Simulated scan of single mutants.
Amino acid sequence: MKKHLILSQLAICASMALVGVSAQAADEKGSAQAGQGKVWLCIGCHSIPDYRADYPFVYKVPMIGGQNAAYIASALTAYKKGERKHPTMRSIAASLSDQDMADIGEYYAAQTASSPKNPLK
């Protein structure tokens, strides 16, 4: 009985922590214009059609142009926290602030097939 009580309290605490993180991430208002100057590392892999990164394992690199801004910021946060495991993405995300992630998300969300900058996304 005591074990179940402790587990339920831990679950409640974890839920509250996740709500706080989500609220914090939602507070950041991104700017596609500001993001344009922050995606120089992203373009090296994410703009190559059918690119596969091969360190330490083979990963198919997704095209992220047009993706939802909040999803991109959330994914970068997960890499920064180590919840997602790709080593290159983790090291890049570790150098980004919450504002940087929001800006990058807005930049990629604004991309279309006809976007003059990084048209391949």
Score class of each variant (00 low, 15 high):
Gln9Asn: 04
Tyr79Glu: 04
Glu28Cys: 09
Gly82Tyr: 13
Ser114Ala: 15
Ala73Cys: 07
Gly35Lys: 02
Pro56Arg: 03
Tyr108Pro: 00
Gly35Ser: 08
Gln9Asp: 02
Tyr59Lys: 06
Ala113Met: 09
Gln33Ile: 15
His86Ile: 11
Ala110Gly: 14
Ala110Thr: 09
Tyr71Ile: 14
Gly105Lys: 00
Gly35His: 02
Pro119Val: 12
Gln36Val: 04
Gly37Arg: 04
Gly20Pro: 05
Ala69Asn: 04
Ala70Thr: 15
Lys38Gly: 00
Leu96Asn: 01
Pro62Gln: 07
Val39Ile: 15
Ala53Ser: 13
Ala75Leu: 06
Ile64Ala: 00
Gln33Leu: 13
Lys80Asp: 05
Gln24Trp: 13
Ser74Trp: 09
Ala69Val: 04
Met101Lys: 15
Asn118Glu: 11
Arg90Gly: 14
Gly105Glu: 00
Ala11Ile: 04
Tyr79Val: 01
Gly66Asn: 03
Ala32Asn: 04
Ser74Tyr: 09
Ala17Val: 00
Cys13Asn: 04
Cys42Met: 05
Lys85Thr: 14
Met16Pro: 00
Ala109Glu: 12
Gln99His: 10
Leu7Ser: 06
Pro56Ser: 08
Arg84Ile: 02
Asn118Ser: 08
Ser47Asp: 13
Ala102Gly: 04
Lys121Val: 14
Ser47Ile: 03
Gln33Thr: 15
Ala26Glu: 05
His86Asn: 14
Glu28Ile: 07
Arg90Glu: 13
Ser115Trp: 07
Val21Leu: 12
Ala113Trp: 07
Ser8Glu: 09
Ala109Leu: 08
Ser91Gln: 12
Asp27Pro: 00
Gly105Arg: 01
